[in-house]
Simulated assay, not measured.
Amino acid sequence: MTHLGADVVQALPKVLLHDHLDGGLRPATVLELAADVGHELPAATPDALADWFATSADSGSLERYLETFAHTVAVMQTAEALERVAREAVLDLAADGVVHAELRWAPEQHLARGLTMTQAVEAVQAGIDDGIARAAADGRTLRAGQILCALRHTDHWAEVAGLAIALRGDGVLGFDLAGPEQGFPPSRHDGVWRHLATHQIPVTIHAGEAAGVGSVADAVAVGQALRLGHGVRIIEDITFGTDDGAPAPGTDRISGSDGAGGSATLGPVANWVRDQQIPLEVCPVSNTQTGAATSIADHPITRLKELDFAVTLNTDNRLMSRTSLSHEMMLLNTEAGWTLEDLLDVTVTAAWSAFAHHDERRALVEQVIVPGFQKIERASL
């Protein structure tokens, strides 16, 4: 296995489907915005604040991880702040080689200073558009848009869905259900999913992160999810064993990184997700922080990819996880043995899974992703 250089990975064209706007602020921006609104922070310098976010998030608990958002959300309550955060997010992603980005956030959390949800979404879009223009002026081209999140534990699902419908075509790409999985299934407001489907709004749902296979089943059956946010606990519906003869129906032979053979028997939910090629928005570093995975080396993403699940690679929350898409790629290369071909595979899968029209996805794959990887591969030989 060849270790890829940081400059090689940095230069690769990337597609990011799962990145939370309120989880990707620059530490210096958090400090400046907090000073403007009089919000008290746990640290007083950018470096110290970055350390606090990463340490607090690295607790092994999703609940503790989510507590860090109290500070970022608190400073994102005005149109000016939302526009700035969105602009900087786009610029940071462009600098990391991202050519398609879908930024998700929950508008209902940003109304404390008088904004309506519509005004909040418009402010974020203004920031995204400005960031795209500034990146283009620096020679970096990317597409970016918003995914609007409703929170599982509140009752604004229909309102957020209506906003996604009304602003589709004005930068809004789709709808997401986020927040605590346990106890708040998609069936709480099952009419929302029919309404979204009627208006052809793409849906992704956080599932298979804090809760297990049942959460994934609900997301695809009730929520009609076209993608799964995280989805890694689908691995719990797969039984791994030794390769001791002809595989039974529903069983695949797999090869480990050590070359040893084995088998994997998929349960009904895992079979459905794989058969339908429902993309998994996997976020390796975040998953190790919240306890959905023990390490990068043992992360389910590698086995799921070997089993031909539609795996995509994502950042989740760049501030809390102190990560970037380049960083995620580097870790998979150095700790899980991923090759340049593996990275191309998940990037192409992400491009084909984007909430964009078919012709746009095809152009992204054929004109940007594949040529970009080929160029980097030739240069590195």
Rank of each mutant, 00 (worst) to 15 (best):
L12F: 09
D19R: 03
L21Q: 03
L21V: 05
D22H: 15
L25H: 05
E32S: 14
G38Q: 07
L41W: 09
A57T: 04
D58M: 15
S61Q: 04
R64F: 03
L66Q: 09
T68D: 12
V73D: 05
A74L: 05
A79Y: 02
A86Q: 02
E88S: 09
A89M: 09
D96N: 08
A101T: 05
A101S: 09
W105H: 04
T116L: 08
D129L: 14
G131R: 00
A137D: 15
T141D: 13
Q146H: 13
A150Q: 04
L151Q: 14
T154A: 12
V160H: 00
G171P: 03
D176W: 13
D190Y: 07
R194C: 07
A211S: 08
G212K: 00
G214P: 02
S215G: 14
V216Q: 04
D243T: 06
T251G: 11
R253P: 11
R274I: 02
E281I: 01
H299Q: 08
H299Y: 06
T302Y: 03
F309E: 10
A310V: 06
T312N: 03
T312K: 00
L319E: 07
L319I: 12
M329Y: 07
W338S: 05
E341K: 11
L343W: 01
A350E: 14
S353A: 14
S380C: 13
